[in-house]
């Protein structure tokens, strides 16, 4: 597989361990092209979240090669990380919303840190909040939102800057089936518009509905299903 505009992720024999502990990921190898849509499945503790942490650059592999947008993560300097991270949207399993900021400010955060002015993104943020059903809650703080509302705010924050790669860790874990279906349609629509997707999930129904390839992680080893 050649590098260029087409390859977004490439992992070759990637291994990860925390400190002196056992290896959480072992010889993980796979490649993701622009426009691909993958699900990442596996039992709890299989290393899904750790793999995602590697992919959104919160961790670096302890062995092997990880390339994101053609950049070798192992040799990437700290000052170059923001450039790569701005091309990646992340939905965290635990949401990671900032409790002191309104829902609106939380969703707008990636645009704000990229240096955009409030007037330039206000319309986009309000449209997206409306789409995920949070327009009425735009001024509310996260502690007063329900689990599902927090989930939607976290998804909105991940997609607001139109990332090239979207990584999501259990994005439908706290929403009802109707909203889960709407969110799936959002992900499929983003994918259709060119965003590469990798979604870690336990939701077999979601995987079935989407009919997309599945990367299955078990005991630290990855298989394509």
């Amino acid at each position: 597989m050649e590098w260029g505009d087409t390859l977004v992720l490439r992992l070759e024999n990637v291994g990860l361990r925390y400190g002196d502990g056992p290896e959480i990921l072992r010889d993980v190898s796979f490649a993701v092209r622009t426009g691909d849509f993958y699900f990442l499945t596996g039992p709890s503790g299989a290393g899904k979240s750790s793999l995602l942490k590697l992919l959104f650059l919160a961790l670096r592999p302890t062995r092997g090669t990880l390339r994101i947008f053609g950049e070798d993560v192992g040799s990437l300097s700290h000052s170059n990380l923001p450039t790569i991270r701005r091309r990646i949207g992340v939905v965290f399993q635990e949401f990671r919303l900032l409790d002191h900021l309104s829902t609106y400010d939380n969703v707008a955060l990636p645009l704000r840190v990229a240096g955009k002015s409030e007037s330039s993104y206000r319309r986009d943020v309000m449209d997206l909040l409306d789409w995920v059903g949070l327009a009425e809650k735009s001024a509310d703080l996260p502690p007063v939102l329900s689990g599902g509302e927090k989930q939607r705010a976290a998804i909105a924050r991940a997609v607001i800057a139109k990332p090239q790669l979207l990584l999501a860790d259990e994005p439908t874990g706290n929403v009802d089936p109707v909203l889960a279906k709407r969110l799936l349609h959002l992900f499929l629509e983003l994918n259709r518009l060119g965003t590469t997707m990798l979604i870690a999930t336990h939701d077999k129904g979601l995987v079935r509905q989407a009919e997309r390839p599945v990367l299955h992680l078990e005991q630290g080893a990855l298989n394509l299903q």
């Binding site: 000052s79 990380l81 923001p82 991270r85 701005r86 955060l109 990636p110 800057a161």
Partner: peptide
């Protein structure tokens, strides 16, 4: 710390 980590992950530069 939790805010700083999140800011890093959404692409904030150290100077920001």
């Amino acid at each position: 710390r939790h805010i700083v980590d999140l800011l890093h992950l959404v692409g904030a530069r150290d100077s920001y």
